[in-house]
């Protein structure tokens, strides 16, 4: 199972945006290489402006790379025919607003070559899936942002593709909407589809993704298992104390990184993992009571920030 077929393969992609007359060209991607395996949920993670959307647009054949090679399902991304197996949800999608939800999905189904006999049924199924059955006959002009995002997902799935590319699928959705999208992604995975997801929401990555690539300033910083990044290392520990005398607070204030937070005689502090024993000894000796001690594992967020910082420094 481990060496599955690469569904998406990106090799040494580079892209520069011409800046127009008198403006500097902007280098959006530099030597980007990664691959996505069959059947996995892949997270393409990076801060704003990192190059996620640019990469995705190259994969969708919307823009051309200056150098490098990208294939999806073994086909060069500049071909069109293989796209019958590919679904795409763009960032903040927008559709013909003079059409109704039903009409727009039927239109996409037709463009995708779904046979007339099957179109109706497919559209109804999708409206149901994304929870828009009740609004199917309203013009998209009257849809909310979250409803448009759902239409976006439905149109990406209208031809039952093998690979689905989602650019920030949870953006603009309320917590319930996000949960529904997560469930949908899990469901697509269960059906054996490969899901490629652009995002900067790390909790979604931790919950959903089997593998990630982290991109910062147009360069890949990490590719692999997001959980492997997290294991092991306990760096800091949060300690909560009560009944702390003012004198103790003063003596601790100097030694604790990041300072103290507290109300009255209750304080919370964060210390390096190695210093916990020392701290607790001091606190107990001064008559304080220990409320909780919780070791903090590195979170994806902290690793992510580290990766970003390294990018900034080099």
């Amino acid at each position: 199972m481990s060496e599955r077929r690469a569904v998406v393969s990106v090799e040494a992609l580079s892209k520069q945006f011409q800046g127009g007359i008198g403006r500097r060209a902007k280098r959006a991607l530099r030597d980007v290489t990664f691959s996505v395996r069959e059947g996995e949920i892949f997270g393409f993670v990076g801060p704003n402006g990192a190059g996620k959307t640019t990469t995705l647009k190259i994969l969708m054949g919307l823009i051309r790379a200056d150098a490098g090679r990208a294939t999806v399902l073994g086909h060069d991304v500049r071909e069109t025919e293989f796209r019958r197996h590919v679904g795409f949800l763009p960032e903040a999608p927008y559709f013909y607003d003079y059409l109704t939800g039903r009409e727009v999905l039927e239109f996409y189904a037709r463009v995708c070559g779904v046979e007339r006999a099957r179109r109706r049924e497919r559209v109804e199924t999708l409206l149901e899936w994304v929870g828009l059955s009740h609004a199917g006959d309203a013009r998209l002009r009257t849809y909310s942002k979250g409803m448009l995002q759902r239409v976006g997902i439905a149109q990406a799935l209208v031809h039952d593709p093998q690979v689905v590319f989602l650019d920030e699928p949870m953006s603009g959705l309320d917590p319930i909407g996000r949960k529904e999208i997560r469930d949908l992604v899990v469901r697509l995975h269960a059906e054996g589809k490969t899901v490629f997801m652009n995002t900067h929401i790390l909790s979604d990555v931790e919950m959903l993704c089997h593998r990630v690539a982290i991109i910062v300033q147009g360069e890949i910083r990490y590719e692999g298992d997001p959980h492997a990044m997290l294991e092991g290392e306990v760096r800091d520990t949060d300690v909560v104390l009560t009944g702390v005398a003012p004198a103790l607070i003063e003596s601790l204030d100097a030694s604790v990184q990041g300072g103290l937070r507290g109300v009255g005689d209750r304080i919370e502090l964060r210390v390096p993992h190695k210093a916990v024993g020392d701290l607790l000894g001091k606190a107990l000796a001064a008559g304080a009571e220990v409320v909780s001690v919780s070791p903090r594992r590195a979170t994806l967020e902290s690793l992510f920030l580290t990766a970003v910082e390294q990018g900034g420094r080099q």
């Binding site: 919307l62 796209r83 795409f88 763009p90 903040a92 999608p93 996409y108």
Partner: peptide, 14 residues
């Protein structure tokens, strides 16, 4: 301009 072209050209259409 309205980005409707993204969803269309990413479909199997030349």
């Amino acid at each position: 301009d309205r980005r409707t072209i993204f969803t269309i050209l990413s479909k199997p259409i030349a």
